[in-house]
């Protein structure tokens, strides 16, 4: 048995053209409405811990110290008179990295970073974020997680 697929030629008559335009406008309208509802899903307000938090006095951190603020997913390090805040969120797919002998290791897909967050082993392709640090009038240091910096963005203390 044979199956016959006839392809009918469609002509673009004036009437077809009008109807085609009509349907196009209809579709565009629907797409526009769809766009509005899509926007509905995009959050305007984020819930979660505030992006700024205090890490105490600079004196709490002796030279060479490393301290983890696990709730904030931040590691604070001190080298000489420099203090840095490194994000613990893996640049691969967002797991929380853990401090290790060589720096930071990610449990999820095996990315490795050195002590200042430079990636040494994939699959991550970027270095860990650093965050801006500022001194509060109280003498405490404050980390601002919305102020994203790159590696070695230290804050100098006396």
């Amino acid at each position: 048995m044979s199956i016959n697929y006839e392809r009918e030629k469609q002509e673009l008559t004036r009437r077809n053209f009008v109807s085609l335009s009509g349907w196009s406008i209809f579709t565009l309208g629907l797409l526009g409405a769809g766009g509005l509802f899509a926007r509905f899903f995009w959050p305007n307000v984020r819930y979660g811990p505030p992006s700024k938090f205090s890490i105490g006095k600079p004196g709490n951190y002796p030279d060479g110290a490393q301290q983890t603020f696990i709730d904030q997913k931040v590691s604070v390090i001190r080298h000489g008179s420099n203090i840095g805040a490194i994000s613990l969120v893996c640049k691969h797919l967002g797991c929380t990295v853990a401090p290790s002998a060589t720096g930071y290791d990610c449990p999820c897909h095996g990315s490795k970073y050195d002590a200042i967050g430079q990636v040494t082993h994939g699959p991550a392709q970027a270095n860990l974020d650093w965050f801006g640090i500022s001194l509060l009038p109280s003498g405490d240091l404050q980390v601002d997680k919305s102020d994203i910096r790159t590696v070695s963005a230290y804050y100098g203390v006396k």
Binding site: I70, D71, C95, T96, P107
Partner: peptide, 9 residues
């Protein structure tokens, strides 16, 4: 627990 990813996740 958002602070402790299991290893491996």
């Amino acid at each position: 627990d958002a602070t402790k990813p299991p290893n491996p996740a």
